[in-house]
Design a protein around this nucleic acid. Structure first.
Ligand SMILES: [Mn+2]
Ligand SMILES: [Mn+2]
Ligand SMILES: [Zn+2]
Ligand SMILES: [Zn+2]
Lengths: 145, 145
DNA sequence: TTTTAAATTTGTAATCATTACAAAGTGAAA
DNA sequence: TTTCACTTTGTAATGATTACAAATTTAAAA
């Protein structure tokens, strides 16, 4: 996926959102940092380039993107919300040790329940939250033995 | 499942937690109200019986229960945390209209990844979050047509 | 039973993510 | 240029959760 200016503008404006400078920069950050960043992380990164940037703008923009189905939110622990550009449906793994969040691309058969009716309830969206210890932390454990 | 006093005490103390009056009442509430209540809801219900009850005690108790693996938390939207007594592994459906949370008991094959290693990451716990419109709200829609 | 120490509960203050709101800025149409 | 809608910004407010210390309860020791 090439995240050049033209593509970013297209992603934003195709959903009927005006591609302003701040919105482009926020989307660019999300596309280049698939680490499911928080508002704080996005702010710290972008305020270096845009010293006048307001954190409120990031909240406004992300809320707008969510509303327009351009990004999705992740809520792991009840602390900061994390953001993910809408893409191929996938799930998430959080490491209990280092708190890093990884994409999980294993096929889950409940995915096929999206847009279906189960128990009379119409399902529009399914997200799997996996918790455990990540590869890197497991290896660190081994190194200590 | 019979939620008499003896059973409640057993649930709590079998995990090495002292079964105090407040803890018993909180656990009793969770067992009798499988609606995934918030701290606020638990407080409003219990303060009628226990006028001296502090909201901090509910936070303390639930955090302890989570730590001891007696209850699990649900974080749907980044607002209030919701609580669920640990039981047979199941998933959750939230209605975008009425915000009610339902248990989802359909078998999901990613469930079998619990306690397995996927992509080098050790998975200990999996929760599925389903979003959509619930049966009741769908029926309300029909009634309006 | 009294004494004592540890655990628990409580109330209040602090923290922190997020939202509300109004003022200032921007840009395009009239 | 004037106007108007939209966007951005800064600050104040909100609300869930935690920190902390005082008060209370519990259980063991004497
Ligand atoms: Mn992702
Ligand atoms: Mn449940
Ligand atoms: Zn890790
Ligand atoms: Zn509903």
């Amino acid at each position: 996926m090439i995240t050049n200016l033209k593509n970013i503008k297209t992603i934003i404006s195709s959903k009927g959102v005006k591609a302003t400078f701040q919105r482009i920069k926020i989307m660019e950050y999300l596309l280049n940092n698939k680490s499911h960043p928080t508002v704080e992380e996005i702010f710290i990164a972008l305020v270096k380039q845009i010293p006048t940037l307001s954190k409120t703008t990031i909240y406004n923009t992300l809320n707008l993107f969510v509303e327009k189905n351009i990004v999705k939110t992740l809520n792991f622990s009840g602390v900061e919300t994390r953001y993910d550009v809408v893409a191929k449906s996938h799930h998430h793994f959080i490491c209990k040790r280092c708190r890093k969040i990884y994409d999980v691309n294993v096929e889950c058969n409940f995915l096929c329940d999206e847009n279906k009716v189960v128990n009379g309830n119409q399902i529009e969206e399914v997200t799997g939250y996996f918790k455990g210890i990540c590869k890197k932390c497991l290896n660190n454990d081994k190194a200590l033995n």
